[in-house]
Design a protein around this nucleic acid. Sequence first.
DNA 1: GTTAGCATGTAAGGAGTTACATGATTTT
DNA 2: AAAATCATGTAACTCCTTACATGCTAAC
Lengths: 206, 206
Amino acid sequence: MARRGVALEMAVLGLLHDAPMHGYELRKQVTALLGWGRVLSYGTLYPCLKAMARSGFLQMATPTAGAAGGRGRIVYSITAPGRQRFTQLVSEGGPASWEDDVFGVHFAFFARADARTRVRILEGRRSRLEERLERFRTTLARGREHRDAYALELQRHGVESAEREVHWLTDLINTERAGAAPGASGPISTPDPDTTNHHPSTKETA
Amino acid sequence: MARRGVALEMAVLGLLHDAPMHGYELRKQVTALLGWGRVLSYGTLYPCLKAMARSGFLQMATPTAGAAGGRGRIVYSITAPGRQRFTQLVSEGGPASWEDDVFGVHFAFFARADARTRVRILEGRRSRLEERLERFRTTLARGREHRDAYALELQRHGVESAEREVHWLTDLINTERAGAAPGASGPISTPDPDTTNHHPSTKETA
DNA sequence: GTTAGCATGTAAGGAGTTACATGATTTT
DNA sequence: AAAATCATGTAACTCCTTACATGCTAAC
């Protein structure tokens, strides 16, 4: 079958949305975009690309087409159904979209979603983290079972990281509500004078 | 076969090292200890426990033993080979131990490893993160492909988180070198379970 | 005496990895 | 022309989850 991870499917569609690419390049871009620590393996990517082509979302072009079974580089490009599919994926703000992995991909393509979807996903993600935090703190507060200093330190660090991310999300939500894009003016400012990035702000591609 | 994740195996052995427990309780403790966001599912835990019992690391005690097919609560306790196995796992400071998931478990049971192992793992983990950071920054610096403000913000946040964790690790390493335990005050002096010999231990029965 | 929560388990499948295997193109 | 790197692909496996299925025990 095909359904090799919604996250991967989204990433592939999103990257090919801008420009056709072959698999090797795609792997690097996906890896860089999502910063998953690990690199995406070909064993995942190629079967996924094939399946997506079978589903009609992608088109495969072999430059040395038709020749004997030679294995040339294949350029993948997105099709009209593929664009439709991407738009659909990008505007889904359901619970699935605030899970660890999927959230990252959604965020990476936020420029392609409308503001309402963005806020919904950010808030959903934030409450996911807050639940986790709550469970964590309950466990800690229950005092007993508190184990040694290392286990405590691990939990303290876990809580701190989660709190930090909640804070990040809150800032982003406020920025969204103010109708701006991140990095521009809000509490989060990148000292990045050189890059003249055109930020999307009010752009709503349907 | 059995090898259901070194991380899980270690967590189970480490928790049962302190006290026997049944699976239900074990699940809660593992989940709390590792703070994996998600909860550990029974579909993972029970087969793992069974396999570990088959390997001789665990002993299963059914209070209502021998009776008709009734399903009572089963208390798992660690065996002498199990303790040995745990000691072995805990003192392995190889590359495997600085991967995301495994690192957490190792850290949680740091009190059971000797100082040299602790420092080795902390340093290994830190260089893992630094590599990741390096790749990240190279991609960013390469300028091109820089995508929109959201993608940039995602990467900025990724870099910041990794940097923060590197800093955390550095502090821990310094603390270790100074011969202290984390959390402000003096060294932990849990009577060290000998890393060279397995001792038949104090409690063994259910 | 029934709901709620404790407790144990299995089958099927999803999402990925590693290791392997191959061939094309560029650099030295 | 050898070496490095680019490029594509498959098979087998790992680790985990979901959905299901069962039964015991305390509380109301």
